[in-house]
Simulated scan of single mutants.
Amino acid sequence: MWIRQANDTFRFPVFPASFEINSKAIVNTSNVLKTGEIAVFGGAGLRTTEISSFFPKNDEASYCDYTGFPTPYDCVNKIQKWMNEGFILRFTVTETNINMEVIIDSFKYEEKDCTGDVYFTLSLKEYKRIQIPKLNSVSTNTNLSSSKDVPITKGFETKKQRTHKVVKGDNLWSLSQKYYGNGDLYEKIVEANKELIKTADIIKEGWVLTIP
């Protein structure tokens, strides 16, 4: 079970005991003279899901799906940030048909049993992109020629800035080759990190460089 925001991917360390996807149809009712009440289909409603699990303090416990995940409150802080900033997230559950854009509707957490584990309930609501009609600039009539998907909150597709933490053996040419497929484009990295890089052929281990 994963949530992704741009290049920031979070995998839940403990898979919930159960989860469900709630979906519904929008049905509008009206009263028609001499006919009575009628129902009109208004489209599909937004899907929702609620996840209840916990962030364990011990990442080597047998019930953990993997090791090396963040501490419980690092997990809490990440989810709260995504909720407070209104990010569009990609929610996926492998080996299922669940793969959709969502926003966080609510998030609550607590500690109990003095274990250091943090129990949480996370509510997600499906996000649908609106379509803004675009006028044909060539034609003078009022026909709409095309439309464009536009996110109405901060989107995971709009945040494209990358970073790289310098490790032993890195150099600007190798980073340019890694990210652009061409080592000769290293000057793009230099330009984006002018506050750190004073000499074009010197980068230091531990630096976090912006990769434009």
Results as ranks from 00 to 15, higher is better:
D65I: 09
C114A: 15
A17D: 15
E110K: 14
D201G: 09
S23I: 02
R4H: 00
K198L: 13
N28K: 01
M100G: 01
K148C: 01
N7M: 12
P72Y: 01
R162F: 06
K154I: 07
A6H: 08
A44F: 09
S106D: 15
S137L: 10
N28W: 00
D184G: 08
V167M: 03
G68Y: 11
I189T: 14
D59P: 05
G42Q: 04
K112N: 06
I132D: 02
V102I: 09
E101V: 00
K198C: 09
P212L: 07
T140F: 03
E187I: 15
V93G: 00
L89Y: 02
K128C: 05
S62W: 12
E37K: 11
Q131A: 14
R47Y: 03
H164A: 06
F120C: 13
T163S: 08
K194Q: 15
N22H: 10
D105S: 12
D59Y: 07
T29S: 14
S23H: 02
H164F: 06
Y186F: 13
P16L: 02
K78G: 04
E195Q: 11
T153W: 05
P56C: 00
G169V: 04
I79T: 03
C114H: 13
Y66C: 05
E50N: 12
L122G: 02
G86Y: 02
N143F: 02
I202Y: 06
W173A: 07
G43C: 06
L172K: 06
F87W: 15
K188F: 14
N31A: 14
D201M: 08
I203K: 04
I189G: 13
I152N: 10
R129L: 04
I26E: 14
Q80L: 15
Q80H: 08
S176K: 02
N31S: 15
G45K: 12
F41P: 00
S106G: 15
G169A: 04
V27G: 00
Y180E: 13
F120W: 11
H164K: 06
S62L: 15
I3Q: 00
F15V: 05
K198F: 09
L144I: 12
I104E: 02
S176N: 03
T29F: 08
A61M: 10
D117T: 03
E37W: 03
W207I: 12
N99P: 04
D65Q: 12
A192N: 09
V150F: 01
